[in-house]
Design a protein around this nucleic acid. Structure first.
Lengths: 335, 335
DNA sequence: CTGTTAGCGCCTTCAA
DNA sequence: TTGAAGGCGCTAACAG
């Protein structure tokens, strides 16, 4: 049983508890010899400071909350790798909150998050709307707890620090590439549920389409693979609806579209060129391998965590929007 | 700023702080009228108990640690959905520790985990070996913190509560099915890094192979898609090596094998039948859709969390091994 | 450079 | 049914 407290250490090292606390938190303020002695005792006794007592006394937890929409989204999981890696550098712990199947209201949950005394909040929910943004802003102001948005954004305001890519531009670019390939019937495959990030992709798509003076075609489908597969089958049932280009807002949607169409005898990319979005494992595991926008998701996680750490340390960052560079990966589903 | 403490509530409700504490933790010990009054004030003031003070005083955190090997593994992410859902029922928080890219020793990290005062630990790392198991056991005994293993197991001992499926049997079953299909050159595709769960799958495979008196063929490859794709290309380069059946320890390995072989002109399943393991999204997104062992991963998460909760509450469970039923899903890569 | 002391906010006996 | 008081383990002035 780890009953070693700071008192035990102080006693056997023949110092006061204050000295023990110092060698741990401000080593430079302790004479090297005593410091070494204390350190030795700490090791001997296997002493680890009690996180609660420390937090209560110092008002800091070295813990940040991570709010995610759904763990099974590949992008979220990969971002967490980056966040975790960076957090370890600062010795920060991660408190995980999954919004999926939410029974409590989100604002209520955020208050619980704050009550858990986290030093900061990482918000990875891309399905953000105005009321949520306002709520987050309120939380940040009222409780003085810094919040960083990662791989999402709310472009109409800049109160919250944000790490993202230029979704608009990325969508514009891939759509333009399809147009340059000579594609005329280019569909955007997006989610039925509307939200900011996908709205931006839609705008980028529309801009390129309008510039080329061709007709925009948008299919709003489910994020669920099984549902959208059925949906695609239905939509292109007769094989008469012309389609020769695809921009999908998620890799998984692109892959299930490809599977559906190949089953119908279409050739990819000769008949239809396809771009996905994100560059998850789905993209490398599809056949043909999916061309897509590469979102540097781990880097976004790392950057978000490091900015949050800065905010926690009181280094106010003037630049709220941190737009990381994306790239376009040409694999086998485009020419 | 949420400076509302228990004192504020007590003051404006005209009671002592003890009463406030009671209405929150032992409501039945408070007269309904006072209780209602206190509750009203709590709401008015937006009071949320400080988690640190509460933890320090009560010695409980209502927080469990979740130790995972790598977030980007689909199985891990999906299990977390289940865990999170169940944890919410008990109002438990999740502290996330990712082992990937570990710089510190695992036993050292576990001590940090314990120092963070979690009430219990969920260990989702399937790459467990004897020394780790011993270490976990030590932690559980020494610090009196319950540990539950989820989707992994160490079959040679039964000190730790475990939730898993019968990996051995599952592998035996799918291998047997391939044999019944008339397959003769059945490969096991497993990871180069040896670990318990995959060793069990290997044993199940070997048992079926031996019973059928055919030759076992095992390929140990990487968990990394790009690497194992190259590996498969190399191994079956000449197209002369006979192969007509596959059991892969992970869906992703099965899918990359399929892609490689189809590229070489093989037909699935007429030339080669393939079984994967897990039933992740990769299985439904492959073409043809992957037949595989279905591991009820969310259910494992739920069960693990609920057992952990029981242990925390002192309800010692006699049954250490909880083997959940798996099933075999026949899709398009088998006859 | 080190020790003393007063909290941090809450829970939990013990009395009343 | 309620209140008073001690203490959980640690940090952070303030002295020395």
């Amino acid at each position: 049983m780890n009953k070693a407290t700071i008192y035990n250490v102080a006693y056997t090292a023949n110092v006061s508890l204050a000295t023990v606390s110092r060698t741990l938190n401000n080593p430079e303020k302790v004479k090297p010899e005593t410091r070494d002695r204390v350190l030795r005792v700490i090791k001997e006794l296997g002493y680890k400071p009690n996180a609660f007592a420390k937090g209560l006394a110092s008002k800091k937890s070295t813990t940040v909350a991570v709010i995610v929409p759904d763990m099974s989204r590949a992008s979220v999981a990969e971002m967490l790798n980056g966040i975790s890696h960076e957090a370890r550098k600062y010795n920060y712990s991660l408190l995980l909150y999954v919004l999926k199947d939410e029974t409590v209201e989100e604002s209520e949950m955020m208050k619980e998050v704050v009550a858990s005394q986290v030093d900061g909040i990482l918000y990875l929910n891309d399905e953000i709307n105005e009321s949520q943004y306002t709520m987050l802003n309120l939380i940040q102001d009222e409780y003085k707890v810094p919040i960083v948005l990662a791989n999402t954004l709310y472009p109409y305001d800049n109160k919250l620090v944000t790490v993202c890519i230029d979704y608009f531009k990325a969508a514009y670019e891939v759509t333009s590439r399809l147009i340059k390939e000579g594609r005329k019937d280019i569909y955007l495959l997006t989610t039925a549920r509307k939200y900011m990030v996908n709205d931006l992709k839609e705008e980028g798509y529309l801009k390129a389409i309008k510039e080329a003076k061709i007709e925009p075609k948008i299919i709003r489908t489910s994020g669920d693979i099984n549902i959208n597969t059925v949906h695609f089958h239905e939509l292109f049932k007769d094989n008469l609806t012309p389609v020769d280009g695809i921009v999908a807002v998620r890799d998984s949607i692109a892959v299930s579209f490809i599977n559906t169409m190949i089953q119908k005898g279409k050739k990819i990319p000769s008949d239809i060129s396809v771009y996905g979005f994100q560059n998850t494992k789905y993209a490398s595991l599809s056949r043909p391998m999916l061309s897509c926008v590469d979102i540097p998701i781990e880097a976004i996680g790392v950057k978000a965590m490091s900015l949050l750490k800065q905010e926690i340390d009181g280094e106010i960052t003037e630049v709220k929007f941190n737009v990381l560079p994306h790239s376009i990966i040409s694999r086998q589903t485009t020419k």
